[in-house]
Design a protein around this nucleic acid. Structure first.
Length: 566
RNA sequence: GCCCGCGUAGCUCAGUGGAUAGAGUACUUGGCUUCGAACCAAGGGGUCGUAGGUUCAAUUCCUACCGCGGGCACCA
């Protein structure tokens, strides 16, 4: 922000105090009444320069007072320097916010960023907890894309493993129809039945399932057909859900894809002695004691492969095929160790891997215990969405005449899905969440409908004024407090999305949008817009229009949608 | 046992090496003859888990402890 001022201030401080390489850390003040920008540079320099913070601050203020961009500068408190900028400077700066509302074109020739998220299981409906990886991942991918990165949205589908042996066994024993005809719910019922029978005294079923899966691994054609049918059923259901959530993928390779890509990796590890024999004939990697990492199993004692084997093969495949600049994998915190071991193993294999981060989020659980697909103790994502849309429809119909939308059904969808998604994205992803119907479908206060309402309200003002794209005035005599507060907030949009991308924290954007709404609504109720004198009217309409653009852009980055009427 | 994350208002959560720690919700009030009241404005409510340490300045960084959650070889 404000490059000209920054340069001027740096030069000033360096000259006045004879210091090299000092740069002034300008920040937007946290509270009103401290100007447009503030700095604590005087406090930081006090010891180095051997003067009191207030004296230093006074000297900086005196030197900068004549700057062409500064309207007022003052020293406050222990030695803060607060700056008020001239209206023309602030209005000029808003152009950067305007530009930030348009997605940047992908930079040519730049290596891709792979974002892996959602990663559902096959043959089971998505549970409510799947919303976390799905939405957090999509919003992070959106941020990268908006800021000009070439992003590969990657869905790593769990379509391999002993669970298919179990499913096949369950189908053979208790199946009621041909495999293609099952719904996901029915497949889940079969899976739950399997575990019930095991627990009820048929442990031999487990062994049967393992053998069944071994047959699949050995290329049994009938089982392959079985698996393909189940995958097809699952994908149809997923596609439907992803569409409602505004989530999309470029690649959706399953674990099975890596079946023939693991052997070379295992060979390489053996040859380089990175993989060594562990207990019961298993193949493991040991790490230096300084890493604090426990051994990592690559191949089981019976020769079967694991998650880790496939992830190594996948790493190799991604690097060789896409040459990505970064790989980000969005998973819950329980997988942290696994990915630390994966990266450490890659290093021991001397693979040159790109920037890598396991983007973690907290666990979701029920107030009365864990979610478990084994027992069927699962709240389905789709039923939560349906409930949200249902509740939204109820709110809409109860408002009767005051509703302005011409499509209540679409609005209910937008609100119901939005409430759920906003609930996830407005809090720090690292926090654990206890599932609660009312909490995750909130329509009040800091929630999706508040953003939607504010956007609809801003659009309504522009309709009333009969202007579509009002131009931001080049100058203004003065600002009201509410104009200035709103304007400051609008200025922060570009740095907010950049920080949300860098830190992989979409909730910082959600919180910013919420504050923007608060500032706009306070401005709206204090300052007349359409009926104001011409100069004020032009400025206020332009601020209203820019607020609407920022809200829409920001919301869409979070996978939300906002209406023009509601 | 070892390792990781979290602990902020009654509840649900933001936040930061810096000025008086903020929202929502709940409670108490005020504001529609005026651009959308799904809104705005005002009020009460806090030993920022506990104890030390570093710093001009710590709720923020470091250490220990307590509480909760997770992980620690044949699941993913």
């Amino acid at each position: 922000m404000f490059d000209a001022l920054s340069t001027e201030a740096n030069t000033t401080v360096q000259t006045v105090f004879g210091l090299e390489g000092i740069s002034v850390n300008w920040q937007p003040p946290r509270e009103d009444g401290h100007g447009d920008l503030m700095t604590t540079i005087a406090l930081q320099l006090a010891k180095k320069v051997g003067q009191s913070p207030r004296d230093i601050a006074q000297k900086i203020a005196a030197a900068l007072a004549s700057s062409s961009s500064i309207e007022k500068i003052e020293v406050a408190g222990a030695g803060y320097v607060n700056v008020w900028l001239k209206p023309a400077v602030l209005l000029q700066e808003l152009k950067i916010t305007e530009a930030a509302c348009t997605a940047q074109k992908a930079r040519k020739g730049e290596a891709p960023v792979i974002v892996e998220y959602s990663s559902p299981n096959i043959a089971k409906p998505l549970g409510i907890h799947h919303i976390l990886s799905t939405i957090i991942g999509q919003s992070i991918a959106n941020l990268y894309e908006h800021l000009g990165y070439y992003v590969i949205h990657w869905n790593y589908i769990a379509d391999w493993g002993v669970q298919f042996g179990k499913l096949s066994v369950a189908h053979r024993h208790w199946g009621t129809k041909s495999i293609q005809e099952y719904t996901l719910d029915e497949l889940l019922t079969l899976y739950v039945r399997f575990h019930k029978e095991v627990d009820a005294g048929k442990p031999e079923l487990e062994e049967e399932a393992r053998k069944e899966f071994k047959k699949l691994e050995d290329g049994d054609a009938a089982l392959r057909t079985f698996l393909d049918a189940v995958v097809a059923t699952t994908k149809i259901s997923l596609a439907h859900l992803y569409k409602r959530l505004h989530v999309s993928f470029d690649v959706d390779l399953g674990e099975g894809f890596y079946e023939d890509k693991m052997a070379p990796v295992i060979e390489e590890g053996k040859r380089t002695k990175v993989f060594v024999e562990g207990e019961k004939g298993a193949l493991i990697t040991n790490f230096a004691e300084s890493t604090g990492l426990p051994p990592y199993m690559i191949v089981k004692g019976d020769g079967a492969t694991l998650y880790s084997t496939r992830d190594l093969a996948q790493m190799r495949y991604r690097i060789d095929t896409y040459h990505p600049q970064a790989i980000y994998i969005v998973t819950d915190i329980a997988q942290k160790l696994h990915f630390e071991q994966l990266v450490a193993t890659c290093k021991q294999l001397q693979w040159e891997i790109p920037a890598f981060e396991n983007i973690l989020f907290g666990r979701m659980r029920f107030a009365d215990g864990k979610m478990s697909t084994r027992t069927g103790n699962i709240v389905k994502l789709e039923e939560v969405i349906e409930e949200g849309v249902h509740r939204a429809a109820h709110v809409i119909s109860s408002r009767g005449e005051s509703i302005q939308t011409d499509d209540p059904k679409a609005l209910a969808e937008m609100m119901g899905v939005g409430a759920l998604v906003y609930g996830v994205l407005s809090q720090n992803r690292k926090m654990d969440i206890v599932f609660d119907w009312d909490k995750c479908l909130s329509f009040e206060g800091n929630s999706a409908p508040y953003l939607m309402y504010t956007h609809a309200r801003a659009c309504s003002v522009l309709r009333k004024a009969k202007v579509q794209h009002p131009k931001m005035p080049k100058d203004a005599h003065t600002f009201t407090t509410h104009e200035r507060t709103l304007l400051s907030k609008l200025l922060q949009f570009p740095s907010t999305i950049e920080a949300a991308r860098t830190e992989h924290l979409p909730h910082t954007l959600a919180n910013y949008l919420y504050q923007l709404c608060q500032d706009f609504n306070a401005f709206y109720s204090a300052d007349p817009i359409v009926t104001a004198p011409e100069a004020e009217r032009n400025l206020r309409l332009a601020l209203t229009s820019l607020t609407a653009s920022v809200l829409k852009t920001g919301a869409e980055l979070l996978t939300l949608r906002v209406p023009e009427r509601m």
